[in-house]
Design a binder for these strands. Structure first.
Lengths: 330, 330
DNA sequence: CTGTTAGCGCTTTCAT
DNA sequence: ATGAAAGCGCTAACAG
């Protein structure tokens, strides 16, 4: 429990050189005589020396740390996205830290991250303009995933699907099976980042010339259980919608559970679809037809965009294509 | 894009005091005249000043950052555990970063973390003794979750279930339903941290005086798909086991999927159980009976233990109790 | 109650 | 090819 960490000074002393030389060999930033280099390397080895990242960060004004602000890691869609981002961040030697984040904590955020990160990913999160301006002033890029770009704020770059287009595909599929009255389960909070999916769905229905009555829009908090509860009594109501799509897969799974609990057969009596394609969706009974959100690709692009922005290269918003995965739920 | 961050010096100048005074009000570490304090606070406000955490970390030898080494965030069990740890870490003002970690990268680990973290959580991971000693020397505590303690290494504290006891409960339940030949699906790699669950299962079977034949132990990589493939042809084999337990829930779900694909009825023809209780397990058809791993409690205790260790207080290994959640799969 | 100052461990310019 | 030294932004002893 020595509590001791070898410092660069000690390495220098042991190798009989100055600390500058140690830096040179460590960073390959200057010519060093082969013999000297070996002595230094050996001293490093013997002392078990490692560079102190905090000191380096202070000097370089670069932490090689990135933050990801998420909603709820319990949602496999977010976990999957986070996983992909980390995968690509690691390739570029960045360390990722994540924060489950809610609007109320926004004030603490600046203090928490100051001097800690080189960039910020938003995963289904939005920040106030003032906060965004703050990070812009600091030169800390913000990349937003799963949430549309903030208007008038060119500081944040966003990556997402064209939800209207994707929902149109899904609606056409439902139409082909004879459905005309399609319901939607959205996230209750109108401030919630996923509320733009509802807007997109509305637009898609309109473009497909299908009416979407207000009572056919249901609200829950994004979780399976509350979705189940919100829809339970509705699935057996006479004269109801014949299909329903969930703003996320967890809610779609909740709808499936509600149907099973009420003995409503899927897809004969009700068609159900999800919007993300998490693993669970392939295991429900019946398995869910979903829009496959390309998490892998999104993670890759997100890191790519982040790197561009950190290097002050121009980066523009990205819209990806998704595929529909047809399973037995419709 | 000013790239500018206000420094403590600027605040001091603007308020007409020395930088020490700014520190005093910020850290409440010294008496400051009320009027002076107000002037300082105002200057901070006006400049949008925030403390630079890298500088503070260097000076204090304390980063307020913790690392979590995980296996695969795509496994909801790990994601759930991580979520809980973060929840408690945030309460104590710690920031968490996670790394998907594989043995091959162990050499990079020391360099990556040095000066970056005050402590390390292992989530179903193990490290070589030499690495552990390295962190011990640096005074960086290691808390291991879901993996048994490392022998001869009192530096790491571990938190887990008494798997033998939990499996005995499950086995007794199966016995009561008439099962005598119970199979197990383990993780293939004997080096894998979850392999201790297999050992515990063996022990439990022995204590319950039930034979566990080698051919009744199946191996997969921990994922749903490979579990499905590994068991597919076996569930229809004549004279086979009548029940099977998965070392994790994802594999148990894979077994359920294999049964559905082969038309094997659960639980009439085969009983299936899992070991963790992830959300998905409640949505399979039929829903899975599982050991409920108390992730919430474990997350809380993990952080508690970590804090104790960081404060040099003694901390001992913790064994938690679990409950069995009975659902329709057996 | 407030200011001066010495470092924390590192990088890098400028001499040599 | 190597070294001396300044300084990144912060804390805390110490002096007043």
């Amino acid at each position: 429990m020595g509590e001791h960490m070898a410092t660069r000074k000690e390495v220098a002393d042991r190798a009989g050189v100055s600390i500058a030389v140690v830096s040179y060999v460590l960073n390959d930033s200057n010519y060093v005589k082969e013999e000297t280099r070996r002595k230094v390397l050996q001293a490093i080895e013997e002392l078990g020396y490692e560079t102190n990242m905090a000191a380096r960060a202070l000097k370089m004004r670069k932490t090689e740390q990135l933050a990801v602000l998420i909603n709820h890691l319990g949602n496999p869609h977010e976990a999957g996205l986070l996983l992909r981002i980390e995968e690509h961040a690691a390739k570029h030697n960045y360390v990722l830290f994540f924060q489950t984040f809610h609007k109320e904590q926004e004030s603490r955020l600046k203090a928490l991250l100051h001097g800690r990160v080189d960039g910020i990913f938003l995963l289904g999160q939005s920040l106030q303009e003032e906060t965004l301006r703050h990070f812009a002033k600091l030169g800390i890029p913000v990349v937003s995933i799963t949430t549309p770009a903030v208007p008038r704020c060119d500081h944040v770059t966003s990556i997402d699907l064209d939800w209207t287009a994707e929902y149109r595909k899904l609606i056409r599929l439902l139409k082909a099976k004879g459905h005309e009255r399609i319901a939607y389960m959205a996230i209750g909070d109108p401030e919630h980042p996923l509320s733009h999916r509802l807007k997109a769905f509305r637009q898609a229905m309109e473009q497909e010339r299908l009416p979407l009555a207000e009572p056919d829009i249901f609200y829950a908090d994004g979780g399976l259980q509350t979705a189940h509860e919100a829809i339970r009594t509705k699935v057996t109501a006479p004269g109801r919608f014949t299909a329903i799509v969930g703003a996320n897969d967890l809610m779609a799974a909740g709808i499936v559970a509600a149907c099973r609990a009420s003995g409503v057969r899927i897809p004969q009596e009700l068609a159900v679809a999800g919007s993300e394609d998490i693993l669970m969706s392939s295991q429900t009974a019946p398995p869910l037809t979903v829009i496959h959100y390309p998490r892998e690709k999104v993670g890759e692009i997100a890191m790519e965009v982040m790197l561009d922005k950190m290097r002050k290269r121009p980066a523009s918003d990205r819209i990806l294509q998704a595929e529909i995965v047809e399973r037995a739920s419709l």
